[in-house]
Nucleic acid binder design. Sequence first.
RNA 1: GGACGCUUAGCUCAGUUGGUAGAGCAACUCGUUUACACCGAGUGGGUCGCAGGUUCAAGUCCUGCAGCGUCCACCA
Length: 751
Amino acid sequence: MEKRLVFWYYFGNVNPKLLKPYNPKATEARVYELWEKSGYFDPDKLPARHKDPFSIVLPPPNVTGTLHMGHAAMLAIEDIVIRFERMRGKRALWLPGTDSAALATQAKVEDILYKKEKKTRHDIGREALLGRIEEFTKESEATIVNQVKRMGSSLDWGRYSYTMDETRNRAVNEAFKRMYEGGLIYRGARIVNWDPKLQTNVSDIEIEWKEETAPFYYLTYGPFTIGTARPETKFGDKYVVMHPDDERYKKYKHGDTLEVEWVNGPVTATIVKDKVVDMAFGTGVMTITPWHDQTDFDIAARHNLDKEQIIDQKGMLMPIAGEFAGVHWKKARPAIVEKLRAKGLVEKVDEKYAHRVATNSRGGGLLEPQVMLQWFVDVNKEFKLPHSELDGFEKGDTVTLKRLMQGVVESGQIEIIPDRFKKTYFHWIKDLRDWCISRQIWYGHQIPVWYRSTGAHDRLNGTPSDSRGVETHVGIERPEGEGWEQDPDTLDTWFSSGLWTFSTLGWPDKTKDLETFHPTDVLETGYDILFFWVARMVLMSTYLLGQIPFKKVYLHGLVRDGKGRKMSKSLGNIIDPLDMIEKYGADATRLSLIIGTAPGNDLKLSEDRVRGYKHFANKLWNVARFVLSNTEHGGFEKAKFAKEDAARMEEFEALKKEVTAHLDKYEFYLAGDNLYHYLWHTFADKVIEESKEALKGGNAAQKRSKQKLLHLLLEDQLKLLHPFIPFVTEELWSMLPHKKQSLLMIEPWPI
RNA sequence: GGACGCUUAGCUCAGUUGGUAGAGCAACUCGUUUACACCGAGUGGGUCGCAGGUUCAAGUCCUGCAGCGUCCACCA
């Protein structure tokens, strides 16, 4: 109480809020509302000085998710860029949205359905499930949107998009249609990564390989010994493959046949010579299972061999397995090995064979390769570029999607930060295979293709094995006439994500937004989705628009816990950004994710870090209290600087330049670090300390010089710090004795 | 098997074009005489992973090695 009175005595008319430590909780919501009401998040409502457009599209968080530290880092970085550019006089647009995350969302709703009602999606049907999902996403949407706001994100909510809304749906259908008509989307029976658990296939990059130790069996196959880790797939093996140059098997000629005794009796084996066989591995001989293995499938394709399905889509063995038919392969394996052993066909078993198995990284189980009729984007097919604003490509040039993806990064039209990821990007594209875009889940953009039977056509596991006898129509609307059925499959969620920079701006309509804000200036995202997303955006945009989707790609690292581990529920090491905001404020949370983090490097975050930056926000608060209490009566505006004060101004000019240069180069960590140290160790420790004597009285000219210095330095520091810590700076700005009523967020950048 | 990254104070990391080793947190000592104890002044603590090389000068550039991590790859 006594202390309070002393404060009052010394600080006269200074805002009473300043007399207590900075309180983020009492400030942030109010300030955010002020910003939203101002309308300045919308580039169309910015004052006239804001001319050149600048745009970032927010990587859409999962609509059913909650904010995690990865999001928080992304929001902090993007908001820094946007606020910086806005203050610099750009018409800055940061466009928000959420993603349906089709597979994850459907799995979540199915899980709830099963837990609550013991029902599966097949029990309630497609329509009902979609209804439930829509309900669920609607409920969740507000949560994630509010959490994004709490970080202080200056997003233009009036332009909010959802990947499954009407406009985006139209864009997806249009993109599919154009790519189909351009010959870049095709349907084909190919080997895909089937997830028996989720009953859908996933694309190659969604595979997560896991190390596993399993027995490896050496089996007698006629005169040969073959090795396998999967004896349950071997029933149909009737091709035995070896390298053409292998001396050991010189006497066997390509195409020779021989009778061998096999699991369920004798089979006729055919010799195949193929260079893909590694002579040094095992015995240099293998039998193949084209239906369930990519390598084997390729061999079979090269030599035009039969392919037979051994395992069905639920993981059960097919009739070809004889007595084992209808049994799950996992259960059947020991029995099959036992039978082989009884027949004397097991030569030896290596119990500790280390190999990798494919699992679905999207929460599924073991993947079983299957041959299925699916939709693909052809990345190697040559076509004539329909339009081009791309460096090094002219309209009408013969190109492939792959070459487009490579070209725009090679030419430097798209810059990747940090630079080293260029290599990763090129390396991935070099061996890129066609992108399988159809999924057998229900939630998502249903493929805009219609089929009608024109007579007999064979079916393969419930899906037509080829398009013979089937009439196909590509389009959004059901075509005229009887018997048309839409393809039940949906598109890979990354297909719609690939359109994100322009679907959010209204494409395929020729909107003003699209014209103004595309290509966007920078795409900021985690390096873990460079292939999933960044590369696909380049593919879509270059083909459909003839434009790059963004000029720069800034890749941030993954946020890990204090020990460098991935944050996960099971480890219980999650640091929740909302907890941090609650305890230390959004500004502190932002700084903790910026300072000391170079692009592309993982960040180890601990609560101590966040607490440290809360102290910084408070330091600024106290500095402002001192400056305001000593300058509140004005009268120093026209003062001449004393020599040492002029030197301080020069020193500060250098800082401004340095900070601006760092921001220009996307070195946020360095810009933030410079500002942090200047405020604390130069402004507070030196400038303020040195001013105390003069402020006490004595020489009036000296005093006014100090007052002017303190005033100017504080004001400009608030501006420079605003992109980093917008809440506390905006709050302090409102306490400055201004003539004009304006928000700090649109003050001109002081350089 | 290939590629990339990391290795600097107890912990987390900066160190931008090579020029006498830095910050935050933690620890310890002292300080509450009026911006701030969410503070100030100070102390301790590093042969910059290892071994070579280039240079007047290397944490920084080059070569090799090791450990850790990540990504990619059709070894049955």
